[in-house]
Amino acid sequence: MTPATTTVPGVMRTSSVAPGTRLDPESQELLQALTGSGRAYDDACARLHELLLRAARFEVTRRARSLKGAEADAIATEAADDALLAVLRRLDDFRGLSKLTTWAYKFALYEAAVKVRRHAWRDRELPVEPDTLASLHGGVPGPEEDVEMRERLGTIAAAIDEVLTPHQRRVLVALAVNGVPIDVLAERLSTTRGALYKTLHDARAKLRVQLEETS
């Protein structure tokens, strides 16, 4: 009974959009062209690339204002190219739960954001850990009202030493204390954002338990 214009007639065999899912007309048209062939497919890819480039430029402009025009443009173009490949490779995963443009944008934003973060750190060594962890214990004596806070930080620092594995400690300190972007750390440690965040999450959970037990 659903009118053909609001469902996905021809593409169900090649996409994961559930039968009967209501797609907006723009998404439907683009998805159909992208799962087709020939001239329509080529045109759709060009249109998709334009959308991705817009999103990538949006991200690079927001996050890297200090970048020179040519450099910013090179990063945005590279991000859009990578995102186009990712989108086409993963088109089957699009379930029609958002607009197709929103789904595609996230790939471009992700690629651009990762490149901007890595670019900003390309010539920087990762901070050496012990020096920076020491700042938690005391560092510069603060005014009177900071005493309680200093104590709390000291307790956390002690918990870090007591309950975390060396890897958990290294990841926590880099990300939470030294402000190393997670994608930069992932690149240097040859791992992924997801795996690092899992380590961070486990470390945080251990700290919370330890703090509860010692309070």
Binding site: L136, D146, M149, R150, R152, L153, I156, I160, L172, L175, A176, V177, L200, H201, R204, L207, R208, L211
Partner: peptide
Amino acid sequence: RDNELIGRLLG
């Protein structure tokens, strides 16, 4: 700043 640091440490 300390509060933010604690927030980042504990999540």
